[in-house]
C-alpha cells in the first residue's frame, strides 16, 4: 500500500513525490528477497520541499544509526528493490565513504536529487545510504544500466554534488549482477 501524499497550498512542489524507507539487517544474516521485503518499511513520504524538511528533521541522521541500517529515498511508486519494474534494467553508482562523512554527503545527494540537478529525465529512481561497521556507502539508482551517456552524467553529477576528491573510486553495478551474486555492493 502506497501512502497518499500531496503538495499543500503555499508549499513548494517537487518534480516528484518520494517515500523514505528504512531497513535494518541482523548482521550475519544473508540477504534474501523475502527477508528484505519484511525488513524494509516506509517511514514517511513527501511531495513538497516543506514536507521533506519536516520529515528530514524528525529522523535520525545516518551517522546516528546503528550498523547494517539503510535509508532508501525513492520516487513514490518505486520500491527500493532490484526486481521493481523501474529498477530491473537499471543499476547504481556506489561510493564508499570512511566513517564520519555519511550524514553530510547524504544530505548533499538528497538535495541534488530533489532539486532535479541530475538532468537525466526520468532516469533517477532513488538513492540509498548504507551504514556499515567499517565504512558507509552511498548509492544512486537509475533505470537504464545499458545507457553509457546517462551513466556518465549521473556519475559526474554525483561527483560534483558530493564534492568528492578526483581520486575517489566510484563503481557502477547493474541490478542484474546484484541479483546474480545476491549482494548489494
Amino acid at each position: 500500500e502506497w501512502p497518499t501524499v500531496k503538495c499543500k497550498q503555499g508549499e513548494h512542489q517537487l518534480q516528484y513525490s518520494y517515500c523514505v524507507w528504512f531497513s535494518r539487517r541482523t548482521p550475519g544474516n544473508k540477504a534474501s528477497s523475502a527477508n528484505y521485503e519484511q525488513n524494509i518499511k516506509i517511514i514517511g513520504s513527501f511531495a513538497s520541499v516543506e514536507q521533506f524538511w519536516t520529515l528530514y528533521s524528525h529522523i535520525a541522521r545516518p551517522c546516528d544509526l546503528t550498523s547494517s541500517s539503510d535509508y532508501h529515498l525513492f520516487k513514490h511508486g518505486i520500491k527500493p528493490m532490484w526486481e521493481d519494474e523501474a529498477n530491473k534494467k537499471g543499476g547504481k553508482w556506489i561510493v564508499r565513504l570512511r566513517k564520519g562523512l555519511a550524514s553530510r554527503l547524504w544530505e548533499n545527494l538528497v538535495i541534488a536529487m530533489l532539486g532535479e540537478q541530475f538532468m537525466v529525465g526520468e532516469e533517477i529512481c532513488g538513492a540509498v545510504v548504507s551504514v556499515r561497521f567499517a565504512e558507509d556507502i552511498i548509492s544512486i539508482w537509475n533505470r537504464t544500466a545499458s545507457d553509457n551517456s546517462i551513466n556518465i552524467r549521473v556519475r559526474d553529477t554525483l561527483q560534483r554534488v558530493l564534492n568528492l576528491p578526483p581520486n575517489t573510486i566510484m563503481e557502477y553495478k547493474t541490478h542484474t549482477d546484484s541479483l546474480k551474486d545476491r549482494s548489494s555492493f
Binding site: 518534480q15 548533499n108 538535495i111
Partner: peptide, 21 residues
C-alpha cells in the same frame, strides 16, 4: 515538459521556513 528545478541554496534556506517545521 517543464521540470521543477531547485538549487542547493534555495533548498537549504527552505529548511528554516515556518512550513518546514
Amino acid at each position: 515538459g517543464t521540470r521543477i528545478i531547485y538549487d542547493r541554496n534555495f533548498l537549504l534556506n527552505m529548511r528554516n521556513s515556518p512550513l518546514s517545521q
